[in-house]
Design a protein around this nucleic acid. Sequence first.
DNA 1: ACCTGAACACCGTTCAAGT
DNA 2: ACCTGAACACCGTTCAAGT
Lengths: 214, 214
Amino acid sequence: MSLKSPSDQAKSKGLPPPTYHHGDLREALVQAGIEILEERGLAALTLRETARRAGVSHAAPYHHFSDKGALLTAIAARGFRMQHNAMAAAAQSTTDPGEGLQAYGLNYVSFAQNHPSLFRLMYTRECGPNTPPELAEASSGFYPKMVEGICAATGCSVEQASSISLLLWSTMHGLAMLWLDHQLLWEGHPPLDKLAYELSELLGRILQSPNPAP
Amino acid sequence: MSLKSPSDQAKSKGLPPPTYHHGDLREALVQAGIEILEERGLAALTLRETARRAGVSHAAPYHHFSDKGALLTAIAARGFRMQHNAMAAAAQSTTDPGEGLQAYGLNYVSFAQNHPSLFRLMYTRECGPNTPPELAEASSGFYPKMVEGICAATGCSVEQASSISLLLWSTMHGLAMLWLDHQLLWEGHPPLDKLAYELSELLGRILQSPNPAP
DNA sequence: ACCTGAACACCGTTCAAGT
DNA sequence: ACCTGAACACCGTTCAAGT
């Protein structure tokens, strides 16, 4: 009853509530979901809680999403867009291809650290074979750019660049996941960004090493 | 009513059921949980379903686990033991330290492929700061062995070996996770074991490259 | 077209009661 | 000591009914 809702804002401005319905409830639900995720974590991200936060009944989301999974997918897609924006900005800070690749990797890990629950949701959606195109496109959009960057940095073939690309991605993804899952707790436990920097330096050796005979 | 339960087996042997209680219900619940995981996936792993499968009431597990999280932790710990056994067996197949490391990595990915839901459960338990010692010990037990193996293979310092160790672990963990999460779906989509082999070959270059000045 | 309220099945958890 | 059955709060989903 005393739950804050967007329509309360309209009321407090003295405007008569034209209607209790949102202009764009779908968007409001995605936004509410992200807020719940960042504030209270994955376990709290419930369809009913999302509806409550958006100020509508628990059945309302079904007019915009076929089920809970569809809502989670929309939130994940939004997260991928956020990540891409952050990575693009980071890569833009340098013109050197090698440094650009390093910035990519470090920023990938940073995003996971800054948005742990969102990051986990993004990469843990098992939509099986029928991944919605919205997600499929959003999720691996940066992979081709990495291959490009590696070709520019090393002059190697696209095939070799693909392998190296996967190596960089796997390494940073694995580091981020192991950190999120509290697996990096041994003696010293250096901060995550330091570990990411160490690994990126090690990987730099591969980029600089001579290509093996094909 | 017509659910199969372990006590039915006793009955069908003609033995009078001495009691409906298990000798070791805790163990039976962990086993039931693993079976559910492998047959029907994480979403089906429910406290009540686990109890049904073990043939007891849904409240019975609370006499052996404080809550659902404790049951999941016990299942995860069992999974880590399974993984360690598999990896130890794989590493034993060679005496060459370099080959041993490669076998370690490839087997890590194999385990994830063969037990996708169990693998995800193992590495996704966020027990926060109060990780039960049972899990903490089981989860990263192989890390020191890797550092050891790298020292033996390269003769480098423990510090350098720690970094390289984390590189190998992160890479194989990330590859496994990206594959489980259906992120490796671009053109060609080579099989996972082939990708793992490619990455391990690339990483081999780092092991063989000259150590930088400290 | 968009939303609500009641309803159903299922889940995690608790607790008095049984043996 | 170990388990059961009923109970409670919560969740995902459906659907007739409202505007």
